[in-house]
Write a protein that binds this DNA or RNA. Sequence first.
DNA 1: ATCGTTTTTTACCAAATGATAAATGATTTC
DNA 2: GAAATCATTTATCATTTGGTAAAAAACGAT
Lengths: 186, 186
Amino acid sequence: MEELIGYILQFGGLNKQQIELISSKATKTQLCKDDYFAEAGTAFDQIVYVQEGIFRICYFNKNGDEITKYFIEENRLFSNPYKEDLMTEYIQALTDCKLIVFSRKDWNELSNTIIDWDTITHKIFQKGLVEKLDRRSALVNEDATTRYLTFLEKFPTLVNRVPLSYIASYLGITQQSLSRIRKNIS
Amino acid sequence: MEELIGYILQFGGLNKQQIELISSKATKTQLCKDDYFAEAGTAFDQIVYVQEGIFRICYFNKNGDEITKYFIEENRLFSNPYKEDLMTEYIQALTDCKLIVFSRKDWNELSNTIIDWDTITHKIFQKGLVEKLDRRSALVNEDATTRYLTFLEKFPTLVNRVPLSYIASYLGITQQSLSRIRKNIS
DNA sequence: ATCGTTTTTTACCAAATGATAAATGATTTC
DNA sequence: GAAATCATTTATCATTTGGTAAAAAACGAT
């Protein structure tokens, strides 16, 4: 729980009382490798902090290929960015996971007590979106090898925990290409 | 000004008084083709509504290539997503433009009078970010021809107003390739 | 341990894209 | 209007990547 509070504190100050209030709304939960945490077409009304584990967000494109859009590492908050709407994407655990979960209702009600809560919330998710945009965007203009090298830089802890095919899909290349690239750079 | 108000009304209700207050803070201004509206390394503390014209957001990658990250069409609000920080990107007018501009100070102070203002603001920019993420992200897993066809779908009004080289850079391909693709699909 | 399944690697060839260079077309400037 | 500048197209060739298929390796269940 301390890590989560530390994470939130990056985005705004909180006193002891407020921290306790936040903690009181939190529920710890777990998820097994390969479980789906949310599926496209369903509602997803939770705010989730990843204590341990990795997730991926994916969807199916027009050809029916499953595309990994991004990964979510440890010590991140995530949610459904389109609050009101149903999910358009799948959220899958890639390892066994330990999570801290809030209902959106509870989370939002914290703003009744914590004056800056909405601002903090928006900063958190805005920063997350900007980061995702930048990372994904950066892939577009690079060749396959550079994409993989950048991936290794940005996600050094993921390579050995995520199947090659998911990484290839994230990078926009085939798994055969990625395998070849791995061979060449080693 | 009506269009701007209409745009904002998509994200939350406003009464007549509030609309007048918003309008009173707005400044109309113009920009010429190819002018830079903001440059990387400088502060950018404005909220801008594009009444007429097209912008592009671009940056220089490690190789010194200028990358067009996205376009901003008519009837959109934009700003510097990283509020506090200096710009990391350039904002350039690609046509003569008519703009409605707010200082961030004025814009933010509207929340003193308009109860939902912060929420509306965050919705606007969050939606913008999600859209940018999805568009840019979708390019990663497609081949060059599909990228261009999708571009034509999503930005039907841009093709004839934006230089080919910028479109190519946006799509992550060379301008020669794009020229070849244009030839093939016609 | 063994079988069956899944993942990753490897190989080969076809197709797409990039790099370079030159030609054409369009626009600006004087 | 001619010259100069810039944008786009075309062409050629080298390189990269994708598609298909098969082999090897890793993993799981019994």
